[in-house]
Design a protein around this nucleic acid. Sequence first.
RNA 1: AAGACAGUCUGGCUUAUCGCCUUUGUUUUUUCGAAUGUUUUUUUGGAGAAAUAAGGGAGGAAAGUCCGAGCAGUACAGAGCAUUGUACUUCCUAACGGGAAGGAGUUGAGUUAGGAAUGACUCAAUUACAGAUAGUGUCGCAGAAAAUAACCGCCUUAUUUCCAAGAAAUUAGGGUAAGGGUGAAAAGGUAGGGUAAGAGCCUACCAGUAAUUGAAGUAAUUCGAUUAGCUGGAUAAACCUUACGAACUGAAAGACCAAAUAGGUCAGCACUUGAGGGUGACUCGUCCGAUGCUGGCGGGUAGGUCGUUUGAGGUAGUCGGUGACGGCUAUCCCAGAUAAAUGAUAAGCACUUUUCAAUCUAACUUUGAGUAACCAUUGAAAAGCACAGAACUCGGCUUAUAGGACUGUCUUUUUA
RNA 2: GCACCAUUCGUCUAGGGGUUAGGACGCCGCCCUUUCACGGCGGUAACACGGGUUCAAAUCCCGUAUGGUGUA
Length: 137
Amino acid sequence: MSENPSTNSLFPIQGEQFPKSEKLCNVRIINQLFAIRKSEFVYPFKIVYLREQKEIASKPPQILISVSKRNFKKAVTRNRIKRQIREIYRKNRKDIFTEQTFVPHYLAIIFIAKKQESFGFMEDRLCKVLRRISQKS
RNA sequence: AAGACAGUCUGGCUUAUCGCCUUUGUUUUUUCGAAUGUUUUUUUGGAGAAAUAAGGGAGGAAAGUCCGAGCAGUACAGAGCAUUGUACUUCCUAACGGGAAGGAGUUGAGUUAGGAAUGACUCAAUUACAGAUAGUGUCGCAGAAAAUAACCGCCUUAUUUCCAAGAAAUUAGGGUAAGGGUGAAAAGGUAGGGUAAGAGCCUACCAGUAAUUGAAGUAAUUCGAUUAGCUGGAUAAACCUUACGAACUGAAAGACCAAAUAGGUCAGCACUUGAGGGUGACUCGUCCGAUGCUGGCGGGUAGGUCGUUUGAGGUAGUCGGUGACGGCUAUCCCAGAUAAAUGAUAAGCACUUUUCAAUCUAACUUUGAGUAACCAUUGAAAAGCACAGAACUCGGCUUAUAGGACUGUCUUUUUA
RNA sequence: GCACCAUUCGUCUAGGGGUUAGGACGCCGCCCUUUCACGGCGGUAACACGGGUUCAAAUCCCGUAUGGUGUA
């Protein structure tokens, strides 16, 4: 479609922007997402995803990030983990989701671990899970 | 100078790459309305999106949700009961259970008076600090007795036994708080008089209570005087009494806009003799025109704006006040998110600790010099760099907190 | 966000100013039995933490920590 093969039509202009339309806020869709429960797991991430049938994804997926209050009591550490996960997703999604791969409509990234992990470790593992989802058909 | 304790203030910095939220300006674009106009338009206003430029973007506790207010809705004549909170005095404050200054009590240290008990003064810490003589309740164990004290003891009267009298003993009664190994607490303390034995029964001194009253102080209270009965345990963070206060619910409060009650089905009513709708304040007129209205069942929607960040506001100066704090003047606008923004990564600097090396020397071995601790300086490496994230907004309190700065008190050492 | 409750042996609990802090299940030892189980006897082990009131606190009051509940 596009002349330049490096550009991705899902994330056309500035590939590393993260506007509000890519965040999942609707309560009904969240309930639907967790009712269906299609998921992948690689420590320390569990990913729940949903793709509506008969539709080809033309928009980038909406995501939500969840860190349990039970495992991390303090708001400061929860906020930091969520920010790190958001940065990893923002930097790497362009390479993972393209027109040729499987693109879900909605994603929930859940952090399962009981202690904080290093940024490099989390980046490696999160890319691995997202690639596994993108290989599906 | 070091350490401990208490209080006040502060709570890292820089660069690069990629981002998030918000305010304002410009450009492009979508949509809605108004005017002009009628193939194509132009002007203007509102709302949304994108790009770009500039500005701003967590705290001293944002935390706990322990108090007090603003604000909003509901209720409400007034007063009382019930429930519940507070409690030395004066002041500060919008208000407070907060704060300031003062008073009193308790504890500790020092000085001093004294034979001692103890008193006086100074300093520090601390106190939910009204009432126990309005009433009710409770006070385990021990102890005679735990709050209307008589078990033992002491004294005495009557009776009986022995009997010259007295003494002793038995039984019944009376008086008596001086004595009785307890206990957290034992019915004012000491001395003298007094008595059958005793007792504030009386007297002196001391402690305390009540009433009247003088002086100082705004007051709490302090220093005194007179009289009285002589004395009345503790507990109100037991019930309670007195005084003062509290209506209830919380921004998920509340206000507005948009969307929605379509189609279906059941029952009733009206109707081509014109139902109903548009235009219009209404009627007439005119246009559309066959189903319309009411109720039930069932079905369906759940988003946005305001509230919301200009406020008992901040900063600086100055004046008043012992102080909390207040007045005046100047100046500034300083987060506003909504399943949760204020960041992520990398590098460097600063700070702290540890280790190593070098310099410096006390000292030692010895007389060529060598080995060289502590402190300090320089360099390198490693580790650490607190507590913690706004959710309508303020005033406090409480709790957490690496490192740094300042002030006060106490202790130790050195010098004079 | 707001409102509220609880914390006692390893577990579930009683006790609401004066007890040796009681009970059940568990664990340990002994007896019973050829052995195990059942049963009997005995033992072990607890008032979340820090202050205060009181002669005396698991209990009353204040603060902290932890866990939980309700609320659209």
